[in-house]
Write a protein that binds this DNA or RNA. Structure first.
Length: 542
RNA sequence: GCCCCGGUAGCUCAGCUGGAUAGAGCAGCGGACUUCUAAUCCGCAGGUCGCAGGUUCGAGUCCUGCCCGGGGCGCCA
């Protein structure tokens, strides 16, 4: 949807204005007549029925500077809003310690639907257009992807989708750790399997190792280097297939090996030019402690070999030189200890530490009959991404993984997940979408639509419209906070709002048919968009 | 010892960066299918928001200390 005409790099804000933004602006304007608010007034949909369609705390924030009781100020605010909003304000009420509750007219609600029906509703909210690199999954290519990678993949992809919808230019990147000692260990394991020998201590013990070895002709006799390369290639191909089947499609598969030796040397040069390295105890160090790290870090060992950190430096230099405005790395919880040093290194390289985001994903714990099991690639004990998809399907799997905040650990009991997959809320949301399609089918292809109408709106219609109108703010919030799980929560709530409307209001055949079809169209479009942001399908029928 | 993430209903989790009587899904109990899709809907029950202080008109949310669970603190990758 972002193809075609170029857009302004900085938004005027006009694209974003909608009924809620107008309302918010009116409240802000009314407030500024009275005094200085200590913070921006809220404008929210109260969870409590009977507290109006929208509610603001502006009066309480103004009380100090205006030197008057909050409830008195709320009355003055209301009087001002009454003039500003005219017929759109149906009624108001001052409540509690000084809340101002607003009830908007049916006309305001009807007009709002047209806004929600506009193409791209909720998108393009970014204030500043950026070229963003999102690096995620980045699993070692020495074994199959497990559910932890699935979580990382679902999250990274959903975040990328959010950023794209928000208006950013996003590159999805997978960093392939195809260099270093784990590749050697993998090659040794492959050779042992090919020769029918026991896998050496510290090697990879999973059955997949034998399968991979079988796919490499002459594996028993190949040089370790070559065997490692072949093995990694096979694993990588498998990973690509698994991820594609899971709906995750990377733009770039970046090989760590290609950073050696030139990229690493280049990275060291850059640090050297910045005066950020020194030699001590026979090793080469980088002064990360001057940028917030606990201690300085070795990048070249006293034996002349590079540390893993050397690759990280080269990689981040490379990313910067590819012209990204923002780098987002999605890591597993076991890497949180590296956040400070990588941020420090990035700053030492002359980067802006705020332009490098390191997002830590908490783990997926495997639970079997109430017992926690440890997932480990080397021991071969894990639930694979493929297995998860085979058991419960892509949509249920993605929903399961995306419905929770990324900083909460997830307990996965595969038996339970299998049992409960039929009860996965994702189907409820999809069902609402399919049901709307069914209603439209019933109405026929030529049925009229209108956002005009007479007569009172049903409370369920008003609630559905209000829910639709909050979508742009939800997208904004989910994007700003890197929190796609909010979209899942929103999608469920929207599906509930639609289902209540469907229950209470006859659509096809009613004298409000054209209006209710327009409302249904808007609900369907937003449901489809929300599901798409999560990488979940929106079926026409179920 | 230090650092990061959690602790909210029986279970799994939200809680819009401080707002009104803390929510959802699942599980449980009781109801609803001659109707635009019952993968649905309605009702009931379920809580010392880990504990103790503090900040203020107001704290699940912010601060301090402690308890519990998970993860991390290499010249490994």
């Amino acid at each position: 949807m972002h193809d075609g005409a170029p857009r302004d790099p900085v938004r005027s804000g006009t694209l974003m204005t909608g009924p809620i933004e107008d309302l918010r602006a009116a409240v802000a304007a009314a407030a500024s007549e009275i005094g200085e608010a200590s913070s921006a007034p809220t404008l929210e949909r109260p969870r409590q029925a009977g507290h109006g369609d929208f509610s603001t705390n502006a009066a309480m924030l103004l009380a100090k500077s205006a030197g008057a009781p909050p409830r008195d100020i709320a009355e003055r605010l209301a009087a001002s809003l009454d003039v500003r909003l005219g017929d759109d304000l149906a009624s108001y009420e001052v409540a509690g310690p000084g809340f101002l509750n607003l009830v908007l007219s049916d006309g305001w609600h009807r007009r709002a639907i047209a806004h929600a029906l506009a193409p791209g509703f909720g998108g393009d909210g970014a204030q500043q257009l950026e070229k963003v690199n999102v690096e995620f999954v980045s699993a070692n290519p020495t074994g199959p992807l497990h559910v932890g990678h699935a979580r990382n993949g679902a999250y990274g992809d959903a975040l990328a989708r959010l950023l794209e919808f928000h208006g950013q230019d996003v590159t999805r990147e997978f960093y392939v750790n195809d260099y270093g000692s784990q590749v050697v260990r993998f090659a040794e394991s492959l050779r042992a399997r090919a020769r029918g020998e026991a896998v050496p201590e510290g090697g990879y013990k999973g059955d997949y190792v034998a399968e991979v070895a079988e796919q490499i002709p002459g594996a028993a006799e190949l040089e370790l280097d070559e065997l490692g390369r072949r093995g990694v290639a096979v694993m990588l191909e498998r990973s690509k297939e698994s991820l594609l089947a899971f709906g995750v499609d990377f733009d770039i598969w970046f090989s760590e090996a290609t950073l050696h030796p030139d990229g690493v040397a280049h990275g060291f040069d850059r640090l050297g030019e910045m005066g950020e390295t020194y030699r001590a105890e026979g090793a080469l160090w980088v002064k990360t402690s001057e940028h917030g790290d606990d201690k300085d870090r070795v990048i070249e060992r006293s034996n002349g070999e590079h540390t893993y950190f050397a690759s990280d430096i080269a990689y981040h230099v490379n990313k910067r030189e590819r012209g990204f405005d923002r780098l987002i790395d999605v890591w597993g919880a076991d890497h949180h200890g590296y956040v400070q040093r990588v941020k420090a290194m990035f700053e030492a390289l002359g980067g802006d530490r705020d332009k490098l985001e390191l997002i830590i994903m908490q783990f997926v714990h495997l639970v079997e009959r109430g017992e926690r099991a440890q997932m480990s690639k080397r021991s071969g004990e894990f639930v694979s991404l493929d297995e998860l998809v085979a058991e419960i399907g892509v949509d249920a799997a993605r929903w399961f993984l995306l419905a929770r905040s990324h900083d909460t650990t997830i307990d996965l009991d595969l038996d339970l997940a299998r049992e409960q997959s039929a009860e996965n809320p994702v189907y409820y949301v999809q069902y609402a979408h399919a049901r709307i399609e069914s209603v439209k089918r019933k109405a026929g292809p030529d049925a009229n639509r209108t956002t005009d109408g007479a007569g009172d709106l049903h409370p369920s219609e008003r609630a559905l419209i209000q829910k639709l109108l909050t979508f742009p703010a939800e997208v904004q919030e989910a994007t700003d906070r890197r929190a796609p799980h909010r979209i899942a929560a929103y999608a469920l709530e929207l599906a509930q709002s639609f289902t209540a409307f469907y229950r209470d209001c006859q659509i096809v055949g009613s004298d409000q048919q054209a209006f209710r079809l327009a409302l249904s169209d808007a609900a369907q479009a937003v449901l489809a968009r929300a599901l798409d942001l999560l990488g979940v399908s929106a079926p026409q029928e179920m």
